[in-house]
Write a protein that binds this DNA or RNA. Structure first.
Length: 516
RNA sequence: CGGGGCGUGGCGCAGCCCGGUAGCGCACCUGCUUUGGGAGCAGGGGGUCGCUGGUUCGAAUCCAGUCGCCCCGACCA
């Protein structure tokens, strides 16, 4: 649509993705300039969090519903956010020695069926292709819910010797899971993710891999998305179907609920045995390799929204923000001198911000500054620079930080060069704000009564000694509505303290929360 | 899958009970005036009412079915 680029009549510099002048600046997502919904209201976050979430996702143009049940379209602004996130993680995946490749979307039923627990676990949510054209297939094909089965089937032919190990691969793909209840980003029928798959000669090496990738997820969540997370091990009931154990990172949303933001599985030899993957070791003995898999999905975008957003809309940490700085010019249209002064200042900011700052001047005509402020606040842009004739008289502009509303007058001189530091500071502030939320809402409990009391007022992250028996997990669930054991914390040990449910000596500390 | 609600221009809704071929706000387009927190005036374009069938001279309105979405409960990245 023509609305993608504004100010096209008078703007001296072509902006956004249509830049054709060889400007070194990276193309900044262009469609965020659309006026669609720009004046619309969103529900109050404190009064109706769920509706606020949906409103923000749609009004900020991250995503929208489609004609297909449970499937969403990720719009350019939302996709840009995902791309930033994806690229950061992709770099970590490569840094840790993995290579990307691609396996097909369709998986023969017979392949899927070989690992009993796995197929049983996924059966309820697999979508099937039964026809090619108008001809019924001899064997129906699953649309991948995850790819362990097809990958094992193929690697059974490719792994023969200890020299072939380790295999360290990853793929960025869509997967499909027929969910009963869907939510934008958090749980959709089709979603995007990466799934890493590795094969190792030893159990210990696989275990180390599982830890390494969980650490990458922590780094992504905390250092890029500014979301503090709790690492830990899933209980038996939440373990991935077919895995020996599953590790997760759990993040706190600003309503106190937990979001599982990434998982890493030790598959031991469960799949390699079932799929007949064998190699000959140095002593000429046949072995099954040890395997891992790990995944992180577009769900984490939902987490980003719910972790940081406020009444005005999104708050995006600078490192992943599609647009980091929104510049709003303010000038009277009947004052040509002032308009020229303001435009010169804007152009100078664009020029001096440098290629590493994603800066956008909002030159849309016919909108008052208030509209533009609200527009960029809803979209969570970390910094806003107001360039007006009044401040410019003193050689200054106003800079407002989205995360805390902090406002300062800054000399225009050299501001472009100072932006990276200001963005870095905003990143830190966003992370600190989320950390404060987590700290304020975290409690230690030593009994079910204390657990119940902890949840009396609001949703929290409760931690307490836990023996990891099924009946104790059930007791926790029964004690507090919608609360579950999210994981057994990697950073804590109970050291024999009594389990909050049964009182027997416990080794682990459970993180208990209500979860999305 | 059970309970509740809703499908009417892009968005949000009214009209439906008491059938007579569609209305409001916002958005959109044009012009002028505005521009330091969501503008004003004037003019203009756009919908056949989720879908299918039925009742009727006539259906957005009544009936049946169907699809979809949202919210609340049992399964999940």
């Amino acid at each position: 649509m023509s609305g993608g680029v504004y100010g096209h009549r008078r703007a001296p510099i072509t902006r956004g993705g249509r830049d054709d002048r060889g400007d070194a600046r990276p193309s900044v997502y262009s469609a965020a300039m659309t006026r669609e919904h720009s004046l619309s209201q969103i529900a109050s976050k404190s009064e109706d969090f769920d509706r606020w979430y949906v409103d923000v996702v749609r009004r900020a143009e991250l995503a929208d519903y489609t004609p297909v049940r449970g499937c969403m379209v990720i719009r350019p602004y939302g996709y840009a956010l995902w791309e930033r996130t994806r690229d950061a993680l992709d770099a970590m995946i490569k840094r840790t020695g993995h290579e990307n490749m691609y396996f097909p979307l369709l998986i023969p039923e017979s392949y899927l069926a070989k690992e009993a627990e796995h197929v049983e676990g996924f059966a309820p949510e697999v979508a099937w292709v039964t026809h090619g054209g108008d001809k019924e297939l001899d064997e129906r094909l699953a649309i991948r819910p995850t790819s362990e089965t097809i990958i094992c089937s193929m690697y059974a032919d490719w792994i023969h010797s200890w020299r072939d190990l380790p295999v360290l691969i990853n793929q960025w793909v869509n997967v499909c899971r027929w969910e009963k209840r869907t939510r934008l980003f958090l749980r959709t029928t089709e979603f995007l993710w990466q799934e890493g798959h590795t094969f190792h000669a030893t159990d210990e090496e696989a275990a180390a891999e599982v830890d390494t990738m969980l650490e990458c997820y922590r780094e992504l969540a905390e250092d890029w998305l500014a979301m503090p997370v709790i690492k830990g091990r899933k209980t038996e009931s939440e373990r991935f179907a077919g895995a020996r154990y599953t590790l997760s990172i759990e993040a706190m949303m600003s309503d106190g609920w937990a979001l599982q933001a990434g998982t890493s599985h030790h598959l031991a030899q469960n799949f390699t045995t079932a799929y007949g993957i064998k190699y000959t070791d140095r002593t000429n003995t046949e072995q099954h390799p040890f395997q891992t898999s790990w995944g992180l999905s577009t769900r984490i975008i939902g987490g980003l929204i719910m972790a940081h957003g406020d009444e005005a809309g999104l708050i995006i940490p600078p490192r992943v923000a599609p647009i980091q700085v929104a510049v709003v010019p303010i000038a009277r249209s009947n004052d040509d001198d002032a308009a020229r002064l303001v435009e010169d200042a804007c152009a100078r900011l664009e020029r001096e911000a440098g290629p590493d700052v994603r800066l956008r001047v909002d030159r849309r005509e016919g909108l008052r500054p208030g509209d533009k402020f609200a527009h960029w606040e809803l979209r969570g842009v970390p910094l806003r620079i107001t360039v007006g004739a009044r401040d410019l008289g003193d050689g200054q502009v106003t800079v407002v930080r989205r995360v805390d509303g902090g406002q300062t007058l800054e000399p225009l001189e050299g501001l472009g060069a100072r932006l990276p530091d200001m963005l870095a500071a905003a990143q830190v502030a966003t992370r600190a704000r989320a950390q404060r939320l987590l700290d304020e809402r975290s409690v230690d409990v030593s009994s079910l009564d204390e657990l119940i009391a902890a949840f009396a007022e609001r949703a929290v992250f409760a931690s307490g000694p836990f023996c990891n028996l099924d009946e104790c997990e059930a007791a926790v669930k029964a004690a507090v509505h919608a609360a579950t054991v999210r994981n057994l914390r990697a950073d804590r040990t109970a050291d024999g303290a009594p389990c909050i449910a049964c009182g027997r000596p416990a080794e682990d500390v459970a993180l208990i929360a209500r979860a999305y």
